[in-house]
Structure formats: C-alpha cells, structure tokens
C-alpha cells in the first residue's frame, strides 16, 4: 500500500499521472480530498480514466451508467463528489470513455459549468469576506478572503483551459466527427 497527496486542476494531467503510476505497478484503489491510495501489483495491468458525471454517483442515472460500464468490463474504483475513477484491464485493448468529438465537448462543458459556478461563488464569498473585514474588522474574514480568492482563480483558470479545448474541438468538428 502506498499513499500520497496531489492536487490537480486538469483531470487529464491527473489521468496521465495515474496511468504512469499504473505502468510502474501502483494501482489506484481510493481517492479522497487529494489523498491517493495505491495497491502495489504487477506493472501495466490497468488503464485508468477519470470522468465528471452528470449527477452524484449514487443518483439512479449514475448507477445505471456505472452498471452499463461494469458490463463492459470497466471497474468503478472511487468517487469524489461527481468525479469518478474507472479502470479496465490493459489486456482488453484501448480504453477511452469518449470516442467522438461531440461527447468529448459535452464532457468538457460539464467541467466548465462546475468550475465556473464554484469559481465564481468563491469570488463572491471572497469579496464579501473582504467587505466584512472592512466593515466589522473581523480578522477571520480577512484570513479567509485570500483563500477564496485563490480558489476562485484556480477554478476559473481550470474552466478557461477547458473552454480552449472545446474551441479546438469545435474547429476540428467542422472537418470530421
């Protein structure tokens, strides 16, 4: 068993890292709040994929989807809010959740919506924390405000990089599907 902390804003970089770990024999078995837990097994056994679901993993629509994937030999490893971690045996061939431009655009838009909403709410909370400090001289609010501001910057940056990916895909879609 091996545990480590990491923070990713780009899920594709996270996926790349998880697959590099799997190639070395470190197979993810759980993720919670930045803490990754790995089982040490034979190298290169699995391919990992991460997806942002439409609803929380225990919603009936998500359960139907996860069951469908299970029937295709895909294991549901861990969930973190709406983010889910899947893996498939590498011997069963290539594994990508989405194989066409439209469904990839749809997935990126889901991320933009999530990061956009959480990012903007953090910005609003940060501003209200600053103003509370100004009006009531509350030092707790002063300590929290920069944290909210930082979180909102990171999330808006994340949303923006997905928007760029969507734009690139839309251009490509004019030529092929």
């Amino acid at each position: 068993m091996y545990r480590t902390y990491r923070l990713f804003i780009d899920y594709e970089k996270e996926e790349y890292w998880l697959n590099q770990m799997a190639a070395k024999g470190y197979n993810l078995i759980n993720y919670f709040l930045g803490l990754y837990t790995f089982d040490i097994e034979q190298p290169g056994k699995y391919i990992y994929r991460i997806e942002l679901l439409d609803s929380l993993p225990f919603a009936s629509s998500s359960i139907r989807y996860i069951t469908f994937l299970k029937e295709m030999g895909i294991e549901h490893i861990s969930s973190h809010f709406r983010w889910v971690y899947f893996r498939k045996l590498a011997t069963e061939g290539p594994f990508d959740i989405y194989s066409d431009i439209d469904s990839r655009i749809l997935h990126y838009s889901r991320i933009v919506k999530l990061y956009g909403i959480v990012g903007l709410s953090n910005l609003v909370i940060s501003i209200s924390n600053f103003s509370l400090w100004l009006s009531e001289a509350s030092t707790l609010n002063l300590k929290l405000a920069p944290l909210n501001l930082l979180a909102s910057f990171i999330l808006i940056f994340g949303a923006n990089s997905c928007i760029k990916k969507i734009r690139r895909l839309k251009k490509e879609r004019q030529l092929r599907e």
């Binding site: 997806e51 989807y65 469908f68 895909i74 290539p94 989405y98 066409d100 469904s103």
Partner: peptide, 18 residues
C-alpha cells in the same frame, strides 16, 4: 463494431451509452 471495422472504430463506453 470493432470487428466489422477491423479495429478501426473502438466505441468509447461513454459515447456508446449516450
């Protein structure tokens, strides 16, 4: 689909489900 296309078209499970 994979067989009929000689491994050219591998449907992603998310795409197939949608």
């Amino acid at each position: 689909v994979q067989e009929i296309s000689n491994n050219r078209v591998v449907l992603g499970p998310g795409t197939l489900y949608g």
